[in-house]
Design a binder for these strands. Structure first.
Lengths: 236, 236
DNA sequence: ATAATAAACGTATTTTATACATTTATAAAA
DNA sequence: TTTTATAAATGTATAAAATACGTTTATTAT
């Protein structure tokens, strides 16, 4: 028998049964617009309806691990950028039972996903401007995650999580234009990005969008960490 | 009987029992340094140890309402600024049982608290630099909340939540100096704050710290909201 | 060779941030 | 009642960053 006194058991038994889940707001970028990965539920409740990808949290895993688990199940990806958004803890948010959910947003490189796996689960990338009605309060989670993404992108270089490992400066600009929904001056954008000194320019060129071709770059995490440690903060 | 099918009941019963709590990281400011409100637990487990103020979430209340409830119980205050920090969902964070907690930080005007009530609960304000060892992972919650406070203070005027309704510009400066742990040039600080145009200058003066006296100001939320709506973001 | 075009580079102007000096209002001391 | 002391308030010159906009370059297709 475990050493806890009856008093302790009472303490932990005092509160009421609440189910705890986590839902992933999965963002991707296809060099045109921000995409969201959602799927059509194949089981009840809400069978056939569009939904974020989530799961109940198991007793044997942390909340964050639960989110990682479902993300890997669906996309085949590991070590994905993921951050807690917030807890949706309203009493009536799920008509079926008292369920709270931890919203977590993930940024993935679409081209690295396991396409077969994604399709197998009935998951589909939707343009952010064409998100259908989702189950429960999931549309709210998406809206909140987008606000968070915009905010976070303004002081941390999370944008790089959405681009291929190698990308051009125009690629990066298009990404930020998609995030902020506004055009940047290409000359000033380039100047600012280069001034940050967190990119490594490669010899290679990407000629898919122009005759001249654009040099590929890699994000230099070391340089970025040095920046942060010196107390300087990325701002676009 | 309720209309849910057995299948649905199974669905919601599928996951394992996890307890859900919320803990408040309560900050105050006494015109010198940032303070944290903690208390000595009077019941087991952890009886006699310092702890954040928290509670299990009841089936009849939202997660946010649970935090508001405990805050009001202890301080007598309502309508307090409070924001979710993050979920602490590790499997082993509580040795007694599988418990996850939602950390929420609150900013209160110390002088508005119900001092008797606070004392009755054994709660004590501690200088941020003199926080004792807390129960479970509560020291981590405090550390994380402080990072969040600094970050948030840099793009939203949450500082005003910690000051009395009427305050002087030197008061405000001392607050930001306490948050960022660095001195600002008083001439430039004043210039920036006034340029933001979110303060209303009153006729009244506070003469407690100088012969000349300093004009009292009020935070003008309307002007601030207009700023935000125009897409301009407060930055100190 | 020439045209077409995205990519890359450059420069002038405005705005904002920083560094530092001076004046002002007031209570208490001389 | 003048003088002194001091926080509060105002001012100004310089440096840095953001913005607006013009030009050159490398390459493929005509």
């Amino acid at each position: 028998m475990n050493p806890m006194s009856t008093q302790l058991i009472d303490y932990y038994a005092a509160e009421d049964k609440i189910h705890i889940a986590t839902d992933c707001i999965i963002f991707g970028f296809d060099n045109e617009s921000i995409k969201l990965l959602i799927f059509k539920r194949r089981v009840d409740p809400f069978k056939g309806q569009w939904s974020l990808i989530g799961s109940f949290v198991k007793a044997t895993e942390s909340v964050n691990d639960a989110a990682k688990r479902v993300l890997t199940e669906i996309t085949g990806l590991e070590n994905v950028f993921m951050k807690q958004l917030k807890v949706y803890g309203g009493v009536d948010r799920d008509p079926g039972a008292r369920c709270i959910t931890v919203g977590q947003y993930a940024l993935i490189r679409i081209e690295e996903q396991d396409k077969t796996l994604v399709e197998k689960h009935g998951a589909v990338w939707h343009d952010l401007h064409e998100i259908p009605d989702l189950v429960l309060d999931h549309n709210t989670l998406v809206k909140d995650a987008l606000v968070q993404l915009k905010l976070k992108a303004s002081y941390q270089p999370i944008g790089f999580e959405l681009l291929p490992k190698k990308f051009t400066i125009p690629n990066l600009q298009r990404l930020y234009e998609a995030i902020y929904q506004k055009k940047f001056d290409d000359r000033n954008f380039r100047k600012k990005i280069i001034a940050l000194d967190v990119l490594t320019k490669l010899e290679e060129k990407d000629k898919s969008t122009s005759k001249k071709g654009a040099f590929l770059h890699k994000f230099n995490k070391e340089k970025y960490n040095k920046l942060v440690n010196r107390g300087i903060n990325f701002r676009l």
